Simulated assay, not measured.
Amino acid sequence: MITLHTLKFSRATRVLWLLEDLEQPCERIDYDRTPEFRAPEALSRVHPLGKSPVIEDDGEMIAESSTILRYLVDKYGDESHRPPRGTREFWRHEALFDYVEASFAEVALQAIMPAFRGKDVPDDAGAALGKHLDYITGEPGEGPLLFGSRLMLADIQISYILALLDTLGLLGDHPQIAEYWKVLQEQPGYIAATRAAGPMAPPN
């Protein structure tokens, strides 16, 4: 059985969500954040960088939530969370999946961090975030999810950043994204994961 190391209010919830979707059990080891909202020292004894999520499976230790999500769908032979391989939609999906952490997260955090500290979001950070949210708004097509009515890895991947933005009131100017986030929160795997491990984002 997979062991999942989960830090509270972190990307680890995305991994638990996928495991719930796949109906696969795990041994979950939870870690609370420090008063400074950092990962505890105990996680450094799991991974040299003190990262979460981390999974252990058959003697292998795997970090990076993106890698873990891909590992799990391959391990369990899941074909339901990605479009068929070799199709145009498959590569569109892979691009969106990687876009979340490679491009969107960095921009979003430039707005999230000052807002989290109770400060105004700098104009340039707000403008950059707006540009990316406009881009995402154009992706769902027929919706309500990124690839129609079927939940994909890219939807799970983007959920953590949207949770933070919503908690801090940074989706107000993008009602379509706010509605998309509402739909994500109605997904059975999300509900089960957050009931088990708590919300993705800390209370504001």
Rank of each mutant, 00 (worst) to 15 (best):
I62Q: 05
A95H: 05
I112R: 02
V183Q: 05
D57C: 10
D155F: 09
A111Y: 01
Q187H: 11
D123I: 13
K75C: 01
L69R: 03
L133W: 06
S66G: 15
H81F: 14
P48W: 08
F97C: 04
C26F: 13
R33G: 06
R85C: 08
A197W: 00
L7W: 05
R150F: 02
Q185P: 01
Y135D: 08
G77L: 10
G59V: 13
P199G: 04
L19M: 12
P140G: 12
L16K: 12
V100P: 00
A196K: 14
D120I: 04
G198T: 07
A178W: 06
F97H: 06
A163C: 09
P140T: 14
R33I: 09
M61P: 02
L133T: 04
H81A: 14
L43A: 04
T6Y: 08
D98A: 12
Y76A: 11
L153G: 06
A178S: 15
L133K: 07
L49G: 07
D74L: 13
W91N: 11
E179N: 10
L129A: 02
Q176A: 13
I112H: 00
E60I: 06
G148A: 06
E60R: 15
R92N: 14
L146E: 02
A102Q: 14
A95W: 09
D30A: 14
E101W: 01
K8H: 15
I158N: 00
R11W: 03
L109G: 00
I29A: 02
G198M: 12
R150E: 15
P122W: 00
G141A: 11
V100M: 06
L133E: 05
G169R: 12
D74V: 13
E56T: 10
R88G: 15
S103A: 12
S10M: 07
L151P: 00
G143T: 06
G198R: 09
H81Y: 03
Y180A: 09
H47T: 03
H47F: 12
I55Q: 01
L69W: 02
L19R: 06
T13K: 02
V100C: 06
V100L: 10
W181P: 00
S103V: 13
I112P: 00
A154W: 01
Y135A: 05
I156G: 01
L7N: 03
C26P: 08
V15H: 07
A128K: 12
P114E: 08
L168G: 03
H93P: 09
L96R: 10
G50P: 05
V73Y: 05
G138W: 10
Q176T: 13
S10F: 05
E36R: 14
S66P: 04
D166E: 14
I177C: 05
I55M: 07
W17L: 03
R11Y: 08
Y99D: 15
E79L: 13
H93I: 08
K75D: 02
L164F: 08
E101S: 15
I156D: 00
P83H: 13
E36S: 14
R14M: 10
L69D: 00
D173R: 15
P35A: 13
K119H: 12
H174E: 06
H93R: 10
D58T: 08
G198H: 09
L96P: 04
P199I: 02
C26D: 10
A178N: 05
A105W: 12
L18F: 06
T6D: 08
L153F: 09
P199N: 09
